[in-house]
Design a protein around this nucleic acid. Structure first.
Lengths: 164, 164
DNA sequence: CCTTAACTTCACAAATTTCTGAAAGAAGCG
DNA sequence: CGCTTCTTTCAGAAATTTGTGAAGTTAAGG
C-alpha cells in the first residue's frame, strides 16, 4: 500500500530536520530558527502553521513566535493569514532561500562603511590604511560579482525548471 | 611635527578596531576573535605579538590565546615565531581574508550532504523532496561560480596592485 | 458586543558561553 | 641543565543567551 502525502514517515522527516538544522547552527544561526526553517523546507506544501511547528518540534508557541519573527526579518520565510481564520501560516519560497543570501549585502555594506572610516582615520598613505583600502576593494569587487552570479542562477533556473 | 609610525593616534586605531569588530560580531563571529582580527588589520605591519594584543585590547593572555587559536583554525591569521625569541607573532595576510571566505566551501559541502540525504529519505518524487533537490541545485551552482569569482578577483588584484 | 482561538510579549529560570587568574608547559639563553 | 620568559590549559565566576509559562493583545464568529 502506498502512503498518502499526510502520513509520510515522521522518522525520516525528523532526521532530516534535525540534521540540516544542526548544519545551519554550525554556520552561526540560532537553534530555533534553524529548526523551524528546516521543518518548513521538509514540509509537503512549504507551509506550516504555528501549531504544527510547535507540535512537530516539541517547542512552545513562544519559541515558534520568536523563531518566525527572526526568519521573517531576514526574508527566509514569509507569513500568510489563512482567509477567515486566525491561524497564521509560515511559508518558505524556494527562491527566498537565495534572496536571503543576497541580503548579506546589508552586512557587507556595513563592513565597507567601517573600512572606509578606518582608511580615513588612519590615513590612506599609511601601511594600515592601505591594507584596509585593499580589503575594501575586495568587498566592492565581490559585491558586484555576487549580483551578477544571482542573475546567472535565475537564468539557469528558469530554463531548467521552466518556471520564471 | 609629523608622527612616527609607532605613535599613531591610538584613539583612531581603537575606534576603528571596536567599530569593525562590532560588525563582525553582528555577522556571527565571537567577540574576542573579532577584536583581535580587527586589531591586526589596523596594525602597521600586519603583525602583532600576544603581549601587544593583550595590552591594546585590555584582555588576558588566555583570551588572546583562545582568539588566535580560532582565527588560525579558520585561516584568517597565521602564527609566526620570531627567530631567537619565544615571542609569537600573529599575522594577517591581506589575501587570507578572502581565502577564509572560500573556506565557507566546507560548510556548504555539509549542507549539500544533508540535503542529499533528505532527498533520499523523503523521496525524490515527493513535493518536499523536489524542494530539497532544487535547493541542492542552487548550492551546487553557486559553489562552482564562487570559485570562478575568486579567480577573477585574483586577476583583477594582480593587475591593480602589481603583486601576484 | 462578547467570547474565544490564536499569536505575541514579558519576566524569569536554566543552560550555555565567555573571560579570567592560576598553574602547568615549552623553549631560548646562559 | 636550570632559569626565565612567553604561551597554553583548565576550573570556575560572571555575563549572556535561550526557551518557557503566564499574562496580554488582536481579530474572527457568533
Amino acid at each position: 500500500m502506498t502512503e498518502s502525502r499526510t502520513d509520510r514517515d515522521p522518522e525520516s522527516v525528523s532526521r532530516f530536520v534535525e540534521h540540516f538544522a544542526a548544519q545551519l547552527v554550525e554556520a552561526g544561526m540560532a537553534r530555533m530558527p534553524s529548526r523551524v526553517f528546516a521543518a518548513l523546507l521538509a514540509s509537503d506544501t512549504g507551509t506550516l502553521t504555528s501549531a504544527e511547528l510547535g507540535e512537530q518540534l516539541r517547542i512552545s508557541p513562544a519559541a515558534v513566535s520568536g523563531a518566525v519573527r527572526y526568519l521573517a526579518q531576514v526574508h527566509m520565510v514569509s507569513r500568510e493569514r489563512e482567509p477567515g481564520s486566525r491561524r497564521e501560516r509560515y511559508r518558505v519560497h524556494s527562491d527566498q532561500w537565495y534572496e536571503a543570501l543576497t541580503n548579506r549585502e546589508a552586512i557587507i555594506k556595513r563592513w565597507e562603511e567601517a573600512l572606509r572610516e578606518g582608511v580615513a582615520g588612519l590615513g590612506a598613505d599609511t601601511p594600515a590604511g592601505r591594507r584596509l583600502a585593499e580589503t575594501l576593494d575586495f568587498f566592492e569587487f565581490i559585491e558586484k560579482d555576487v549580483a551578477e552570479m544571482m542573475e546567472r542562477w535565475r537564468t539557469y533556473r528558469e530554463q531548467k525548471y521552466q518556471r520564471p
